[in-house]
Nucleic acid binder design. Structure first.
Length: 482
RNA sequence: GCCCUCAUCGUCUAGGGGACUAGGACGUCAGCCUUUCAAGCUGAAGACAGGGAUUCGAAUUCCCUUGAGGGCACCA
């Protein structure tokens, strides 16, 4: 591989399922790689045995696949590369850049509590930093398994140039002697991350802003290891509506949930790309190809973005409407099969579905809306809410309207939108009702609700038999209620 | 408490000294269309956190204040 090749990675830890923020990071890495014709690498940072979540790796790969964020290498697993980290840790100890620490977690915990209580920055007191051989031998003999800590320089400062933030500087004395290797001999994030980014020849680290303050530690590691650090770009965070870092308590943040709710991957990609990045002052819609073509770090912003679900819904609706009727029908089918009430008999008839979905397409914001918007096309008997049935009309006129409609409709042979309109529209005048009232009444009788696709089209799709049956039932209910 | 970062309409953002009476989008409101709901169209309301400084001129540069976020684990 050439030295100038762009190589980036998405490196999630399998301690949970990826949410919007994680995926936005993946997306920007992917876009950056594709834009520069580089490589996008997937690395699983599974160094925390205790917090590992079953199925997380599968969920991560599934999410990336759903969105079409294909990776060129990996997934690599850090848990399978333990010897590499251990060797580096050993080397650092040998060279005097790191040391063995025998302090117990309990002692550290107490110390932290005390520091917090005294409003001091919680920091390791470096008790083991300068142990004599004798002291070490005694601790070793007592059976304590040590951790390896980095010997952070006590003076001077560490700075680096962030591609998005510019120059960032930290005083070394504000840094801790952080742990490199845990007592279970797994590396911590800091060690594994640096070692892997170097070994995998990562050219650019594009990660969320929350990592900014650990970057000086990483820089320090690169320095003592005599490795060239990658370029860093810390992406603005995505926050929940409460302005806090996205987390479980923000609800359905797992990216796969959005798939389940019926968001389209294209819409998701487009929406996410605009969270922290923009092309110009007006472009809202960009295809995957356009995104790849135009994506640059220069146009990534610095300010954290609050996730705005309303806009996602709007955008998904636009993408839904852009689908061909055939595409929309086939995409809807899965959701209808999954979410229609159990009373609806399966399997569903595909040709019937394709007559319905055109009436739903411009009304759905997600594919998950489809079953709710279309259930009355599949249900047998409808349950009427009496207040809906007689809304805006009195019982007598409602009864008469439906009776007359039934009378005129029964002999109708050609049951289609035009013929239905030819019969029913004049009837409104005849009955002395506004079309709004008359059609509204029929709408409730036919669909069980006050809002639906256009009445005649709906009736045409439902068919004569079902419509007459529903009108009869509605009529019966009106009479029963009085 | 300490460190770091950020700061334009409710939200996502454009803006990198004069083109800004600050543009676009979502949302909101109003109107049009209309058999309802949507969709569509038109319009409206709506922001440069505050204070200094630099400059002929600042949303744009610098400083301070304030606010917000993030980090400070044998978690990543």
């Amino acid at each position: 591989m050439s030295h100038s090749e762009i190589r980036v990675r998405f490196a999630p830890s399998p301690t949970g399922y990826p949410h919007l923020g994680n995926i936005r990071t993946a997306l920007f890495n992917w876009l950056f790689a594709r834009h520069h014709d580089g490589k996008f690498i997937l690395r699983i940072e599974d160094t925390d045995v205790a917090r590992k979540v079953a199925g997380a790796v599968e969920n991560i790969t599934e999410s990336l696949k759903w969105l079409g964020l294909d990776w060129d290498e990996g997934p690599y697993f850090q848990s399978q590369r333990l010897p590499q980290y251990q060797e580096i840790a050993r080397k650092l100890v040998d060279q005097g850049h790191a040391y063995l620490c025998y302090c117990s977690p309990q002692r550290l915990e107490e110390m932290r509590r005390e520091q917090m209580r005294r409003k001091q920055p919680p920091k390791y007191d470096r008790r083991c930093r300068e142990l004599t051989g004798q002291q070490r031998a005694r601790l070793e003999a007592s059976g304590v398994t040590p951790v390896v800590r980095f010997k952070t320089p006590l003076e001077e400062e560490t700075s680096f140039h962030d591609l998005i933030r510019g120059k960032v500087t930290f005083q070394n004395d504000t840094l801790d002697d952080f742990i490199l290797l845990k007592s279970d001999s797994y590396p911590t994030y800091h060690l594994a991350n640096v070692v892997d980014d170097h070994l995998m020849v990562i050219s650019h680290v594009l990660r969320a802003d929350e990592w900014l303050s650990s970057t000086p530690r990483h820089i320090l590691l690169y320095q003592v290891l005599d490795w060239q650090p990658p370029q860093f770009a810390h992406l603005p965070m995505i926050l929940g509506p409460d302005k806090a870092k996205l987390s479980k308590r923000h609800g359905a943040t797992n990216i796969i949930d959005y798939q389940r709710q019926g968001y389209l991957p294209e819409a998701m990609i487009n929406f996410l790309s605009l969270l922290g990045w923009s092309l110009d002052d007006k472009t809202e819609f960009l295809s995957r190809e356009e995104l790849v073509k135009h994506f640059t770090l220069e146009r990534v912003g610095k300010t954290a973005a609050i996730f705005n679900k309303d806009k996602l819904d709007w955008m998904n609706g636009v993408y839904l409407r852009k689908l061909t009727p055939e595409q929309f029908a086939s995409q809807s089918t899965l959701f209808l099969q999954r979410d229609l009430p159990p009373s609806v008999k399966h399997p569903l008839d595909n040709s019937y579905i394709s007559t319905i979905t055109p009436l739903i397409q411009e009304r759905a914001k997600t594919l998950g809306d489809v079953p709710r918007l279309a259930d009355f096309f599949f249900l047998g008997d409808l349950e009427y809410d009496q207040s809906l049935l007689i809304k805006g009309t009195d019982t007598a006129s409602a009864t008469k309207a439906i009776e007359t409609s039934l009378e005129r409709l029964k002999p109708l042979e050609a049951w289609n939108t035009a013929s239905l309109e030819d019969i029913l529209r004049p009837l409104a005048t005849e009955l002395g009702l506004t079309t709004s009232k008359f059609f509204g009444l029929l709408r409730v009788a036919i669909t069980g609700r006050t809002a639906s696709p256009p009445l005649f089209q709906t009736m045409a799709v439902l068919g004569k038999e079902r419509c007459l049956k529903r009108l009869n039932k509605a009529l019966h209910e009106i009479k029963m209620q009085n």
